[in-house]
Design a binder for these strands. Sequence first.
RNA 1: CGGGGUGUGGCGCAGUUGGCUAGCGCGCGGCGUUCGGGACGCCGAGGUCGGAGGUUCAAGUCCUCUCACCCCGACCA
Length: 577
Amino acid sequence: MRMSQLFGKTSKTEGADYKIASHRLLTQAGFIRESTAGRYYLLPLGLRVHDNIIKVVRKHMDAAGAQELVMPTLHPLELWQETNRTTTTGFELMKVADRRGAEFALGGTAEEMAVDLVRKFNISYKDLPFNIYQFSLKFRDEMRARGGLLRVREFVMKDAYSFGTEAQFKQTYQQMWDAYAAIFKELGLNTDVVAADNGYIGGEYCHEFVSESETGESRYFIDPASGYAAHEDVATFQIENKNVDEVLQEMKPVEAKRGTTMEDGVKLHDMPLWQQIKDVLYFDEATKRYVLAIIRGDFDVNETKLIQAAKAYDLRSATEEEIRDDLGSEPGFISPVAFAKKGKKSGHEVIIVTDRSLRTIRNAYGGANKKDADLLNINIDRDFKPDVEADIALAQPGMKSPDGGELIEKRGIEVGNIFQLGYHYSNLMNGAEYTDDSGKRQKYYMGCYGIGIGRTMAAIVEAHHDSKGIIWPEAIAPFKVYLARLGDEPQVVEAADNLYKDLTQKNVAVLYDDRDERPGGKFADADLMGIPYRLVVSERTISEDKFEVKARQSAQPQLVTKEEVIEILAPTSKGQV
RNA sequence: CGGGGUGUGGCGCAGUUGGCUAGCGCGCGGCGUUCGGGACGCCGAGGUCGGAGGUUCAAGUCCUCUCACCCCGACCA
């Protein structure tokens, strides 16, 4: 490609709104351009990188036995209704109607479509397992797009869906895990694989592939000693027993003129924070129930875990009015002891979820559902009974991992995800069945696997750049070589043109800078665009009948002959004729 | 959706308490001198001041509404 003809320009000035390195660099170097928030033009340079990433992903997916296909972008809305996802997705579903009024969802993920496709065939156990995937534009009406390509409203995702038996699934999941590890390694990303929450996708477990980065939105914990890694949503930790040997004391009400914070309680009673009971009241809009979370005072509630434990969907904090008028308690003085079973006015049911940490303390203290009144010596089972007992605590840095090491907090960009779906979709969708070896109909055991291509591109830039610009790993660079022609003397032009032709004929992707620019500008652009190798042709080099080569990251250029250039950039492997 | 902020040529900005043909730097076009880490001179093109309505003799500047975008939070590949 001749740079004089390349559409898209580099820019010397930085956009003021670009807070994130990848956003700024990709824009400045002419790879992307914003349309509106969260929607981007991929310019020729950007598309080349995007395509290269797709090639790497495809190679490893195919090697893992997955098969590529393409699904429609407009999904019949009935399919989403079949799985109740018109209301429960984490992202806003975008809808369109055709001229007859038939409604479609703009695809944001395609589990229903995959199942619908598969059930159109007569599948036998002999066909299992199989894994189908596509690269396609996904639409998500994100509440807030941000960070350039990191979080957008339209993006290409590789999404794969596996179908098989429960017994087969373990291997499929592992194959995808391994394929992902190989993909991100080839793309130059070091990823941590962390256990995470399935969220609206459904299923029981999943893993995120996270590229460590300060700009990332995922918070997770690792135990370097054991390799334990889990997203903050699901991270668990060991809890030490406190005063479990203490004799149970009689519960007694006391006056408590205090503020409403945990600290106020600690001060008033002069007792440790851990012995206080923390009560947090939520309301689930989906099931119209109150959820009272009870936890040891030195821990915080993890809402994701709470949602799982309470089988809730859409938790919000209860309002002061609800606490007082509907449930007859008092903000800051809530207690599980004799807590209302139902809202007086609303009739909404209350369920009490206690954290396992309550088993590590005795004779706890806390509110009494009345203003300025506390209870001492509260004990689980004797004084109140939980409806659900679970781990609903939020992990914090420094806590003890399940394997005994210390939890270290990290931040990263979630570039890929693998989900176990189990029977989630085959239970919800009719006919998601195959015929087993005894002729009986059986439900599919499924998984799904996503990689955001554009986000991966941004993550690579986040991981590979310096003060001058991007440093693309060779596997995905838009061009392998940047060829600068300095000067326009006929012999320089001829030498540069010839080198460009020769390399191109050997299938080396060359960006030939034939512009009438000064050397400084050309070098700055080459660095900004991050092309792995830089070649220079000038009077100085051709006077010695040589060319200058420099890798993007090395400081020292080398003067070499044309044969050496070709050997470096288009090596002929031994044995090849 | 909640909180904070910004909208003036492609990019970065200035524009005082309302006042004349709306400026500056970069970039862009032409000519000339230059040419190994973003040169210089001269000439030139390019702006419904986000949009609508209002106040006023007069609005980029004041008022109302609205839209877009950015940052922080709830959500994700």
